[in-house]
Design a protein around this nucleic acid. Structure first.
Lengths: 200, 200
DNA sequence: TACGATACGGACCGCTGGTCCGCTTCTCGA
DNA sequence: TCGAGAAGCGGACCAGCGGTCCGTATCGTA
């Protein structure tokens, strides 16, 4: 157990890189336009420092996204309804998807960058496995899906409806307003759950 | 209207590149492992030839995938039911999604490569716009979705359930058998359409 | 066969993510 | 306070990528 506390300048630089990367990703249209060299320059550090702090490009993006994700995660794990554990599944599932949608809407740049930079596939991240398992278990506790063996795939499909590039496409290129998008996703989720939807 | 017929060696090389690329993408785990230089070498041509024939990497992959997609497309546009136009929407929608799923299962490598290489987003391709419009219109003709304004998003969400990387993840890494995956997607589609599903 | 149009091919380019190592800066015991 | 050594810094450097260019070889035609 050799736990050393990091040097002061190290943490300062780490935070500078974090802030610079956040700003750059937020300010640029496509995440590919932001190079590691750009980030290092904007943070006022050398590339070596950047890579020492976060390992590689994916590590940096993951750290950025993780920071935004954390409040949602705690709200889901130990918060009040409708996100927290003390919520009946038919209510919690749409709440969860809505939270995910909002997160990706508010952090499109990072979310797209993460899914794109996720090595091969966004499906091999632990983040994804976590959300999927949670959603699958909730679906299993809803009559329409319990025991059919399809809850697993349904969880994948529902999560796919909130994929970052789709959200970015609709909200960004498509110009769909935030509240409308949320309503559409809610409609879709309701239909999957078998919950009643407003008639056409 | 200056229509010139291409030289013989040009078409031969074009086909050699096509075949070589097809084989290489099929044989490698990740599409990123296949470089343009690899393809040129495998085809026995220079890189210049390769790029002259297909423009750029995306163009080549699109040509490969397009060749596999074409039969499906014609079957949808002018084939017999359940894919063709003379099919009631509640039957045609699942048939369409199933066809798309099978296509991506059979050509995982290409499909993943295409979605990944699709410049920024797979949502800006004309392929996607085509499928989305078709699916949206079909949904509009199904009572549960007609006029709700949500058919557009539902079409996106249903297509997202057949995203290439998800399919590849489930079929490849996850080891889900082909027929089971088709059944799961059918279940999911049915629940979205409001069609009866087998009870749990 | 000879000649112009066409296509070939691989050296070359710009740029990227990532590494390396001589030098600076911090930390901490004396 | 000081100094030695660990920890960290930074930018020159590297390998590999997609893509370009142009002198040269090949094809089609008269």
């Amino acid at each position: 157990m050799t736990e050393r506390k990091p040097r002061k300048d190290a943490t300062r630089n780490r935070e500078a890189v974090f802030a610079a990367a956040d700003a750059l990703f937020a300010g640029c249209g496509s995440p590919e336009d932001v190079t590691m060299a750009d980030i290092a320059a904007a943070a006022g550090v050398g590339k070596g420092t950047l890579f020492r702090a976060y390992g590689d490009r994916t590590g940096l993006i993951r750290a950025l996204y993780g920071a935004r994700l954390e409040p949602v995660r705690t709200a889901v794990e130990s918060g009040p309804p409708p996100l927290g554990p003390d919520t009946p599944p038919p209510v919690r599932v749409p709440a969860l998807l809505d939270a995910l949608l909002c997160l990706k809407l508010d952090n499109r740049h990072l979310a797209v960058a993460l899914e794109a930079a996720g090595a091969d596939s966004p499906y091999r991240t632990e983040h994804y496995a976590h959300w999927h398992a949670l959603l699958r278990d909730l679906l299993e506790r809803i009559p329409a899906w319990a025991g059919t063996g399809s809850a697993d795939f349904a969880a994948h499909a529902l999560l796919a409806a909130t994929r970052a590039d789709l959200v970015a496409h609709l909200a960004g290129d498509g110009g769909v307003p935030r509240e409308e998008l949320r309503a559409r996703l809610a409609d879709f989720t309701a239909s999957v759950l078998g919950t009643a939807r407003p008639a056409g």
